Computed example of a mutant assay.
Amino acid sequence: MTERLSLTEGAKELIRELVNKHGDLMFYQAGGCCEGTQPQCFEKGGYYPRYNDAMIGLAEGFEFWIDRDLFEYWQYSHFTLDVLQGFGPGGFSLETPLGKTFKVHYRLFTESELADLAPVIRSL
């Protein structure tokens, strides 16, 4: 089965650091401007997905949700969660005080990947 989400080693290391400080996590990527243009990391339960948002996979065991409208646009793309040094456009995400920001790299699935694509989970 083709997974919709993967992580760089840097993202994995940062997630482990955040888990040590905050406990269980969750990720959400909205489709709006500013903060919504990059994935946000919250303590689990710190953000509630909207009706019909899509959970595309797990980031080190933690749910990675995408805004329903953004998912419709990117549904044929693989997401790679990465981390960059520096501050993103805002400060809501847990990595901000560490001087880091999560970023997603996208690429289109190949035809063979699309034929065996992992299903998404939709929020109710």
Rank of each mutant, 00 (worst) to 15 (best):
M1P: 12
T2D: 04
S6N: 13
L7V: 07
L7F: 09
L7P: 03
L7N: 07
E9R: 15
A11T: 05
A11C: 11
K12M: 14
K12D: 12
E13C: 06
E13A: 15
I15Q: 08
I15G: 05
L18G: 09
K21V: 12
K21M: 14
H22D: 05
H22R: 02
G23S: 08
L25W: 09
F27K: 01
Y28T: 04
Y28Q: 06
Q29H: 12
A30N: 10
A30V: 01
G31P: 07
G31D: 05
C34V: 10
C34K: 06
C34H: 09
E35S: 13
E35D: 14
G36M: 03
T37I: 12
Q38M: 15
Q38A: 15
Q40M: 12
Q40D: 00
Q40Y: 00
C41H: 00
C41T: 08
E43A: 02
E43G: 00
E43V: 14
K44A: 10
K44E: 10
G45A: 02
G45S: 02
G45T: 02
G46Y: 01
G46T: 00
Y47T: 00
Y47K: 11
Y48F: 06
P49G: 03
R50Q: 13
R50G: 15
N52E: 13
D53P: 05
D53E: 09
D53N: 10
A54Y: 02
A54M: 06
M55W: 00
M55C: 15
M55A: 09
I56K: 02
I56E: 03
G57Q: 03
L58Y: 10
E60G: 01
G61W: 01
G61I: 02
F62S: 05
E63Q: 13
E63D: 15
W65Y: 07
I66V: 15
R68V: 07
L70D: 05
W74N: 13
Q75K: 15
Y76A: 14
Y76V: 09
S77K: 14
H78L: 08
H78F: 08
T80S: 08
L81Q: 04
D82T: 12
D82S: 13
V83I: 11
L84P: 00
L84A: 11
G86R: 08
G86Q: 08
G88P: 01
P89L: 12
P89Q: 08
G91D: 14
F92T: 12
L94V: 06
L94N: 07
E95L: 05
T96N: 14
T96C: 12
T96M: 10
P97I: 02
L98H: 08
G99Y: 01
K100E: 04
K100Y: 09
K100S: 01
T101N: 07
K103C: 02
K103F: 08
V104L: 02
R107Q: 05
R107N: 02
L108W: 07
L108R: 13
L108K: 14
T110V: 06
T110K: 11
E111Y: 02
E111C: 00
E111K: 15
E111N: 11
S112T: 15
S112A: 14
E113P: 09
L114F: 07
L114V: 04
L114W: 04
A115C: 05
A115P: 05
A115V: 04
D116Q: 13
D116S: 14
D116M: 10
L117P: 12
P119D: 05
P119M: 03
P119H: 04
V120L: 09
I121R: 15
I121Y: 06
R122P: 00
R122Y: 15
S123T: 00
S123I: 00
